[in-house]
Structures are given as C-alpha cells and as structure tokens.
Write a protein that binds this DNA or RNA. Structure first.
Length: 121
DNA sequence: GCACTGACGCGGG
DNA sequence: TCCCGCGCCAGTG
C-alpha cells in the first residue's frame, strides 16, 4: 500500500517545533478517512525510523501515542526540546495546537500531491 | 475468507 | 459539556 510511502513523505515535512494530528496526516496522504491507519503506521514504524513520530498527536492535541515510546514521557521531552510547551491535563499530556499545530497551506498540499505523482505513489 | 483490533474522528443524545 | 456509539480500513491470526 502506497499509503505508508505517502505517510513517510508527509512525516518528513512536519516542521521542527510543530505538531500534526493523525487526521491531518491522513488528509495530506490523500486518504481523509485513514486517521487510524496513520496511528497504526507510526506504531509499527511503517513511516520510517527517521520519521519524527513524536510530533504526531490526536485531534485534541493529546499525546495519545506516548505509551508507545520507550519511556512514558519521552514524547513529551522530545517536544519540549523543540520548544513546544506540553501541559499536563486530566486527559494526559497535551500541546496547544493553536500555537504549535502545523498549519498547512494549500500550496504545501498541492506540492505533496505533485510529489506523489512524481514518485508514482 | 472471516473476525477482531486499533497511537482516530465526529455527530447525536 | 460530557459521553457514547458508530464509521473507517489495513494488519493480524
């Protein structure tokens, strides 16, 4: 499935110091309904070991994947190392997507689609 | 081929 | 507002 190869490309484009959501990644892969697969891809390291998996959170900004890291607060620490403020809530660690969320421009989305065509994925 | 699972998201009550 | 339930679909056994 080229979904994972697309995921790889999208992951590489998440800017330093920004966080993206699962749904957002799925959307940028051209599969708006594959938010679950986005998470699955990360859990199984399908997006490549070099992919910044710590920059991916759910739609609410919660670090739902924290448990999949070697240490529970590893993701939190990686994010903070990039200047992203992580606050602790009843629901768990959370980032402010208003401030640190990756805002995609239409140009970026189109550039990705062009890239997929070029790579044939 | 079938059933179950999940680092998700959204609408309805 | 909170919670529940359903849709989603590739992997896995």
């Amino acid at each position: 499935m080229d979904f994972y190869r697309r995921m790889e490309q999208v992951m590489q484009r998440i800017p330093y110091g920004k966080a993206a959501t699962y749904g957002q990644l799925a959307l940028l892969c051209g599969c708006p309904r594959n938010a679950r697969q986005a998470g699955y891809a990360l859990r199984r390291n399908r997006a490549g070991a070099s992919a910044p998996a710590h920059r991916v959170v759910n739609a609410n900004g919660i670090l739902s994947g924290a448990g999949a890291f070697a240490f529970p607060d590893l993701q939190k620490r990686l994010l903070e190392a990039e200047g992203i403020r992580v606050e602790q809530t009843e629901k768990g660690y959370r980032v402010d997507l208003e401030k640190f969320g990756w805002k995609n421009t239409m140009e970026e989305a189109e550039a990705l689609l062009a890239l997929y065509r070029k790579l044939g994925i």
